[in-house]
Amino acid sequence: MYQGVIMSGFGGQGIISAGILLAYTGLTEGKHVTFFPAYGAEMRGGTANCSVVISSEEIASPVVAFPDTLIVMNEPSLTKFEPSIRKGGLLLINSSLVSGKSKRDDLNIHYIRANEFAEKLGTIKIANMVMIGAYSRITGAISIEGLRKSLKKVFPRARQDILDMDLEALKKGMETV
C-alpha cells in the first residue's frame, strides 16, 4: 500500500493541520509516513500546500511529484496540481469554492461541498476535516477511528467542543462519498 497525497488550498484553510493529522494517524496505525509542507512565504489568504506519504513499506523519497490523491480546497490549486495526478488516481474537490470541473477523464473524482457541510456543523474552519473524512472512506489508507484518536494528539491545545466538531466533520465527509 502506497499513497502519495497532495492537499492544497488557501492559507488558513487548515491544509497543514490536515496534512499533519493524516501523517500522524498513519503513524499510529503502523504505517510509514512523511509530511512535507510548502513553507516560507505562505500566509493566510496566500496559497498553502503539503505532501503526505502513507505507505506500508519504508518511504524512499518524501517528494510527491505525481500524487495518487489530490485534495483541492480552492480554484488555483486545481489548475496547479490537476495535471500531475497519476492515471487512475483520486481527485477530491471542494466544490463550495471550486466552480470549475476537472479536465481529466482518467481519474476517480468527487465533488464535495465541504464549506457548506462545515458551516452547517458550526464553522467553515472544519471544511478540511470533511475532505479528510471523504479521503479516509474512499482509500482506507487511514481509519476514522485512528483519526478520532489522533485529533487530541495533533491539536493538544484545541477545546473539546472544537475537537467534537472536527469529528462530526470527518464523519460527514465519510457519509458524502
Binding site: 499533519i20 509516513v33 512523511t34 509530511f35 512535507f36 509542507p37 513553507y39 518524501p62 517528494v63
Partner: peptide, 10 residues
C-alpha cells in the same frame, strides 16, 4: 537542507 528541516517523519 530545507526539506529535511521542514518535513515531518517518525
Amino acid at each position: 537542507d530545507g526539506l529535511l528541516g521542514q518535513m515531518m517523519e517518525p
